[in-house]
């Protein structure tokens, strides 16, 4: 698990800008090479579709949406009954919405993504 986490973290550092964009058919949103790598390495297409679908609904509120995945500390998990949360904000501390997930097999403890111009990307690809 630890090795996989390190490998993903290292892999994510290689993406700067994206020459190719991919499209999610039903949602008609786009994602970058870095996101494609993340989805495959961490087996988290659910995160890509969830964050794209919800961030798209926020586009009229903010051109720029940050998506923060956070695994809650163990004690907070026991207390709240949730393992992780995804916070959608405008990047200036204004939170639009928080989605909580009871369980998740996402390997990383935290991750930030950007959704700009109908495209989901890693911060390094912005």
């Amino acid at each position: 698990m630890k090795a996989q986490v390190n490998e993903i973290k290292e892999g994510l550092q290689h993406f700067h800008g994206s020459e190719t964009v991919f499209q999610i058919p039903l949602l008609r949103t786009r994602y970058t090479n870095g996101i494609k790598y993340l989805a495959e390495a961490a087996e988290c297409f659910w995160l890509i579709t969830d964050s794209s679908a919800f961030a798209k609904t926020l586009m009229d509120k903010s051109y720029f949406v940050t998506i923060d995945f956070k695994r809650l500390p163990k004690d907070k998990q026991d207390y709240s009954g949730y393992e992780a949360e995804i916070i959608y904000s405008d990047g200036n501390g204004n939170i639009f919405e928080t989605h909580r997930y009871n369980v998740t097999d996402f390997p990383l403890d935290e991750l930030r993504l950007f959704f700009v111009d109908n495209t989901l990307m890693l911060p390094s690809e912005y």
Binding site: L27, T49, S52, A53, T57
Partner: peptide
């Protein structure tokens, strides 16, 4: 597909 995405598309 994620739960949120499914709900929104549905």
């Amino acid at each position: 597909m994620g739960r949120v995405a499914f709900q929104l598309i549905f």
